[in-house]
Structure formats: C-alpha cells, structure tokens
Amino acid sequence: MEKIYCKIEKCLGCRSCEIACAVQHSNSKDIFKAIRETPTPLSRRKVQAVQDIIISDSCHHCDPAPCVYACMSGAMYKDENGATKHNKDKCVGCWMCIMVCPFSAISRQEKIAIKCDLCEGRDGYACVDACPTKALFTKEVSET
C-alpha cells in the first residue's frame, strides 16, 4: 500500500497539512465554512517538534496494528490494502485505541475516535498536496 511519510529536514512546521486535513474532514470542504461547523473539524495529522526535529505525523497504518487488536467493538479494522480504517458507526468511544497507539495518532471527536483515513474518496492526499516544502511524500510499501 501507499503510505505518507514526512522528510524531517524539509518540514518547517508551517501546519499547512493540519489545516488541509481538517478542511478535508469537514462537511463543506471549504476552509471559510469549515471554521463555523459544529463539531469543529479536526486534523488527523499533528505537527510536532523536539530538539532540531520538526515533523508532521499521523497514523502509520501499522502492521500489525495495535489499535485494531485493542478495539473491542470491531470499529477499527484493516482494509484489503492493509490500511487501518475506522467504522464510526461501530465506535462506542471506549478509547482502547488511544490507549495503545504508539504514535498518539488517534483523537477524540465528541463520542468517537478519529484518525487518518488516507483521504477516502479523494484523489491524492490533502496533507501531501498542501505541503509547500514537499516534506510530506508518499511511498509504496510492499505487503509483508
């Protein structure tokens, strides 16, 4: 499957990816309207820093995926390509996934978990397209 990576020395921490992600996951898909939506659309990607490192990070679609095994409702699952997906209709907000995600890549939005869905239904990825320095890039990873 194709995964999204961040080239650490290219990331300036501008957070364009976070905004693009939040807008992509809004109802309107329009930044000016998205701001006023309830609940406020949230980014699945987080720009973080330590020492001289800045990185934009999100779900790694781990294999095996701790969140999938921890999910007690069957909401978190692997699709046929190996992407870690989340069925919000099955989610009860028990936060077992948050408890085990090594990257802290899952957040709460009201009563359910949210995470990177690889921009389902969109051609390409909002965060990658929005990255002005091309720090975010995609790479095909072979199935194990």
């Binding site: 701790p66 408890m99 085990v100 090594p102 802290s104």
Partner: peptide
C-alpha cells in the same frame, strides 16, 4: 487528557 496514553503504554 488521555490522548498521549499510547505513548506511555509503549
């Protein structure tokens, strides 16, 4: 504030 929990369990 639970969102960093997985980092700690790791």
């Amino acid at each position: 504030k639970i969102e960093k929990a997985g980092i700690f369990t790791t």
